[in-house]
Lab assay of single mutants.
Amino acid sequence: TYTFKVDNKDQAKKAAKWAKKLGLSFQIEKHGDTFKITVQ
């Protein structure tokens, strides 16, 4: 499981695209202005 934080929606979208490309499941949680992405 890999967790990282991004500062904006664009970065969150890029991370989601990357995870989908690799066939991984992911969750994006919004914490105020940051997004926490968990990829597994």
Rank of each mutant, 00 (worst) to 15 (best):
L24I: 05
D33N: 12
T1G: 11
K13F: 09
T3G: 02
S25N: 11
Q11V: 07
K36F: 15
K30L: 07
T3P: 02
H31V: 14
A16K: 11
D7H: 12
T34M: 13
Q27T: 14
K9M: 14
H31C: 15
D33W: 05
D7E: 11
N8G: 10
T38N: 03
E29G: 03
F26S: 03
T38M: 06
K17S: 10
A16H: 05
Q27R: 13
L24P: 00
V39P: 00
L22S: 05
D7P: 09
L24H: 04
K13L: 12
K5R: 09
F26L: 08
E29H: 07
L22K: 11
F35M: 04
Q11F: 06
F26A: 06
K20S: 08
D33I: 06
A15K: 03
Q40A: 12
V39Q: 00
T34I: 14
K21G: 08
F35H: 02
T34V: 14
K36W: 15
Y2D: 02
K30G: 05
K17A: 13
K30P: 08
V39S: 01
K5L: 15
F26Y: 10
V6W: 04
F26W: 06
K30M: 08
E29P: 00
K36S: 12
K36P: 00
V6E: 01
F4M: 03
I37L: 04
D7M: 12
V39Y: 05
A12L: 11
V6N: 01
D10W: 15
V6D: 01
K21P: 00
H31T: 13
K20E: 07
I28F: 04
K20R: 11
K21D: 06
T1K: 12
Y2R: 07
K30N: 06
I37W: 01
D7C: 15
I28T: 02
L22Y: 10
I28R: 02
Y2K: 05
L22R: 13
D7V: 10
K21Y: 07
A15C: 15
D7W: 13
F35W: 14
T38P: 00
K36T: 14
F26E: 00
T34H: 15
I37V: 10
K5E: 15
G32W: 04
F4G: 01
K9W: 15
N8Q: 04
T1Q: 10
Q11T: 07
L24F: 09
L22N: 10
L24G: 01
D33R: 08
T1E: 09
K5G: 06
F26D: 00
K9H: 09
V6G: 02
K13Q: 10
G23C: 05
Q40E: 09
G32I: 03
K20Y: 08
A19E: 01
T1R: 11
A16T: 06
G32Y: 05
E29Y: 07
